[in-house]
Design a protein around this nucleic acid. Sequence first.
DNA 1: GCCGTTTTCGGCCCGACTGTTTTCAGTCG
Length: 581
Amino acid sequence: MTKDDIANALDEIGTLLALKGENDFKCRAYHAASRTISQLEEDVNKLIAAKRLGSVRGIGEALVEKITTLATTGKLPYLEELRASIPPGLFDILRLPGVGPKKVKALHDALGIDSLAKLKTACEAGEVAKLKGFGEKTAEKMLAGINFLDTVGNRVRFDKGFALGEQLLDRIRTFPGVIRAELCGSLRRRRDTVKDIDIVVSTEPANAAAIMEAFVKLPEVMQVIGQGPTKSSIVAELSLGQSKVVLNADLRVVTDEQFPVAVLHFTGSKEHNIRLRQRAIERGYSLNEYALTGGPKSFADEAAIYKALDLVWVPPELREDTGEIEAAEKNELPELVEVKDIRGVFHNHTTESDGTATLEEMAAAAQELGLEYLGIADHSLSLTIANGLSPTRVKRQWAAIDTLNKKLKGLTIFKGSEVDILEDGSLDFNDELLAGFDYVVASVHTLFALSEEAQTARVCKALSHPAVTMLGHATGRLLLRREGYKLDLDKVLEAAAAHGKMIEINAQPDRLDLDWKYVKRAKALGIPLVINPDAHSTDGLALYPYGVNVARRGWLTKAEVFNTRSAAEVTKELVRRKSVS
DNA sequence: GCCGTTTTCGGCCCGACTGTTTTCAGTCG
């Protein structure tokens, strides 16, 4: 059982208990434990073996027992009994906006509703509106929710959400009376996917109503969910080329004095905020979205609020309650890597395999971006679907790179390959050819359906090969579209650490693979990370900042990201690695 | 369910908005 499996089980228990009408704090304890387990940097089995699981914050006697049972037997009778007592269709109903566990339970208890289909029928028959605590509007909203379930309320990729958020923000900043406006929430925290857009604006109170009116009438508005004097919610849409992005967007209006506190509050995460409020209470204050009651009256910026709570300013990407409060207390937060620190990238394709730009065009684009070096890593022989290179074509490409390197000023091209990891964990080129590359990115592109055990062994074996420099897109996931292949990532990270390999943070917005939680674990194991755009075009090269977001969420400093080094340092290190292999 | 320098019970972050009520529960973030 992986951490994620255990975390999913605990999360499910929390939801099942809520649907049964259990004490909300008990449910929250399970959800909190789920988060804690999924973000654990240590191996959960080691914690169990060392009898240290109970010392983890939020995990007490009862949870130690359940987690131990899960981890050692792969099953949990308690969860199975809960599942048997709750119809699975209730989870679907729970997804409707404005419908929580209490309403789901009431519908089930009173009308026996256990599926969206039955709920729809009951709403249309007027049965739901007659229930105590329900009414016509509730029934209408549920019907609307059922119809919109496919488009609204779903998470979207960060880059798409950010595009819509920035567009709304730009428009809001032009409203009369707006003093300051910021994107908050998960967009500001740079999460890989987002569920909504949070925007905070400051103004004189007299302008608030007019700003709300203008907001709900923006051209992007599909639907107005709510409109009050200080808060309005809409469903907004934006066309992005072929695709369309639809998201909820909330706007909060505050005075300019309240602005820094409001931005802090709406940046979240919820868990980070809870810790800050507890800290405020310990100091005799009370923190809400408007002020730190009992403390300083006004704040120049967020840092001043943190200071009042005896903390240094925490970068938004770290605000997940995964140790940042403790680190901020001791002034031990890392100095996070920045986009400007990236001096080159390694995993990129050309027209030789499945890219759309030639070697020369890619080089020109890299120079345009101000990069010092560009690694070319086209696909290897067996990946015929991507026009993988034969050894002959590889050698021809090397000659082309040598020629280009003589001509170029200020840009070094490195000779790499994205070599397929074959089924048995061996590599798709022979050792002699592999030795001729400056570096090798090893990736899985086939046989996604192998068992976890086989897949893990396959990747770990590849990592033991002396020619391999780094592991490409570790899990093969496509955000919101495809799960990664089954893999014990903790074992993979340990193998990478043992063999001194690097791991890529694939910056493609639909991959962002390695996930930030594992980036943190890789950091703890001392594994160097490399931010790669996996570019298949000149435009694709410019995607690496999305990988920087992941690196920052994984607490990485400049020194922990290999491609922040200069071309000369990179050359030296790649040569050194080849000499020891 | 967890937790403890107001310790083994009684708390558990805080507020806006909606729809149902007639003072509030539920949901959301």
